Amino acid sequence: MTEIQIAAVGDLMVKRYIISDAKQSDGTYSFTPLFAKVTPYLRQADLTIGNLETTFPGNGRECRKSLRSGGPTFKCPDELAPALKEAGFDVLVTANNHCMDYGASGLIRTLRVLDRSGIDHTGTSRSVQESKRTLIKNVSGITIGILSYTAGTNRIPVPIQQPWLVNRIETNKILREIRDLKKKVDLVLLYMHFGKEYQYTPNKRQKQLASLFLKNGANIVLGSHPHVLQPISVQGKKKFVSYSLGNFVSTKLKNNPFTQSGIILTLTIKKDNNGNTSITDINYIPTCVDRRIIKGGKQISEVIPIHDTLKNTDLITERRNRLNRMLKHTIDILKWP
Rank of each mutant, 00 (worst) to 15 (best):
residue 12 L to R: 06
residue 42 L to F: 08
residue 70 G to D: 06
residue 61 R to D: 11
residue 46 D to Y: 07
residue 58 G to R: 01
residue 31 F to M: 04
residue 52 L to T: 02
residue 60 G to W: 04
residue 32 T to M: 11
residue 59 N to K: 15
residue 14 V to M: 08
residue 50 G to E: 03
residue 52 L to G: 00
residue 28 T to N: 07
residue 19 I to Y: 07
residue 51 N to I: 07
residue 24 Q to W: 05
residue 22 A to Q: 02
residue 17 Y to I: 15
residue 12 L to E: 02
residue 6 I to C: 00
residue 62 E to G: 14
residue 29 Y to F: 13
residue 65 K to I: 10
residue 55 T to K: 01
residue 9 V to Y: 06
residue 24 Q to C: 08
residue 28 T to I: 05
residue 33 P to H: 07
residue 14 V to P: 02
residue 23 K to G: 07
residue 7 A to I: 03
residue 26 D to T: 06
residue 39 T to D: 10
residue 66 S to N: 08
residue 32 T to I: 13
residue 39 T to I: 07
residue 11 D to S: 11
residue 25 S to K: 15
residue 60 G to F: 02
residue 35 F to L: 11
residue 64 R to M: 12
residue 18 I to N: 05
residue 60 G to A: 09
residue 5 Q to H: 12
residue 9 V to W: 08
residue 10 G to I: 02
residue 69 S to M: 08
residue 20 S to H: 12
residue 5 Q to T: 14
residue 24 Q to G: 05
residue 18 I to F: 08
residue 29 Y to L: 10
residue 15 K to P: 09
residue 50 G to F: 03
residue 67 L to G: 15
residue 52 L to I: 00
residue 26 D to M: 10
residue 15 K to M: 14
residue 64 R to D: 10
residue 11 D to E: 09
residue 35 F to I: 08
residue 49 I to E: 08
residue 30 S to V: 10
residue 21 D to L: 10
residue 27 G to F: 06
residue 42 L to R: 00
residue 17 Y to D: 15
residue 7 A to R: 00
residue 54 T to A: 06
residue 55 T to N: 10
residue 32 T to L: 11
residue 33 P to E: 02
residue 48 T to G: 05
residue 61 R to K: 14
residue 19 I to N: 04
residue 61 R to F: 11
residue 52 L to N: 00
residue 25 S to V: 11
residue 68 R to K: 15
residue 45 A to Y: 00
residue 23 K to Y: 04
residue 54 T to R: 07
residue 38 V to A: 02
residue 28 T to M: 12
residue 43 R to V: 12
residue 59 N to T: 13
residue 30 S to Q: 07
residue 12 L to C: 04
residue 13 M to D: 10
residue 17 Y to A: 15
residue 32 T to G: 11
